[in-house]
Design a protein around this nucleic acid. Sequence first.
DNA 1: GAGTGGTCTAGACCACTAA
DNA 2: TAGTGGTCTAGACCACTCT
Lengths: 232, 232
Amino acid sequence: MPAYQKIQATIMKRIENGQLKPGDAVDSERELAKIHQVSLMTARHALTALEREGMVQRRRGAGTFVAPPKVHFNKLTSFTEQMAGRSLTACSKVLSFGVVDNEQEVAARLALAANTRLLKLERLRLAADEPFAVETCYLPAEEFSGITRSAVARGSLFSMVETGYGIQLAYADEEMDATAAAPATANLLKVARNEPLLRIRQVIYSTKGKATLYVLGLYRSDRHTLLVRRFR
Amino acid sequence: MPAYQKIQATIMKRIENGQLKPGDAVDSERELAKIHQVSLMTARHALTALEREGMVQRRRGAGTFVAPPKVHFNKLTSFTEQMAGRSLTACSKVLSFGVVDNEQEVAARLALAANTRLLKLERLRLAADEPFAVETCYLPAEEFSGITRSAVARGSLFSMVETGYGIQLAYADEEMDATAAAPATANLLKVARNEPLLRIRQVIYSTKGKATLYVLGLYRSDRHTLLVRRFR
DNA sequence: GAGTGGTCTAGACCACTAA
DNA sequence: TAGTGGTCTAGACCACTCT
């Protein structure tokens, strides 16, 4: 392990176990160089890299300080993870589960041939016993042949893909618009027909850049608002 | 100007004027050091910084290469900027302009006292002569007392705030949901009553972290879909 | 004025890639 | 094997901040 990474690790440890709190000064370049018996440039490398990762802030003439804890915006999380974060009692009901081979638009979004066999999974999402979304997921049937209805009913699809198939999900591109509730959807969500719903179409990519999952979600607008941060 | 920034600038120029295209190899560290009469570390600094900005990619043993053009996700842009980017003929119509002092919810979102005087600006946004959004902006009347109806009718509110008042806008937090078109809104947007619209509430912050602008937007769902990228 | 980060030198050895 | 980026040395001067 390179020297500069060792230096980073010792600083990270002290931040994680609470010895250093946000705003506290970190050892200066010169101190770190002395302590770790390295040159100034090496100590410096460690600190600039930590700054790039957002762990510390450097101020010329003042020193290097522990940065306030990162807030993750625009983070891709599964339904299960979201609900856990808000400590809401949440559950899902599987509405349908099967293989389809004529979803041409979905196949196209996943960059697959038009009649590729796809696993299709429809679920009703509930929070505190109130329905608030209908989500339809599609994924290549070949690749994920081990996924069964009962497994899906038990656990998180995200974690099945990530831990069961060794695929790391990296990011999702989402398209959002509004649509009127169709009769069947209105029944499921317990809203009036033609009630405005938030519609999200999501293509989820793996770390290798491959489109892995397509999700179409319809959300009750009164139960769910979407938060996004945009940067200039 | 530091030497490493000069080196960056010469590389950037060659990328911008097309001498270097994505995938092309950039001069190596050693070549740059010779050309610019600097040490290896300085040439290196220039390249690593360019890589951090996403302009180039470095591959050990192979070289440094021009990165594919950046795609900006989750970027905060004004209506004017967006339309320019898509090369659409766009225009706005000012629906109303004035000062209000009883918009308590808006004041709260801008972290101001409940009855603070606010500039309120309603505009209809059109693209290719088709109306597609109604936007209502609020900003503190005291701070932006120089903004007039005629100025707003001519130019971009964003650029007025940024260049006219020396305030750099940094990021926006957005809340999105769906709502039904009220009669007046439906008329303006030329859609049926109760048609589902995408509603976006936006608080725009300056680089100093101050809430500067509040924008409520209602978008025709058939003319506008919102794109967001989320990361894991 | 003492200490900090920002820039820079003139080299070095290593691990890796591509021809 | 020649060339690349990755890591590292042992210093230097400068601009800046804090007291």
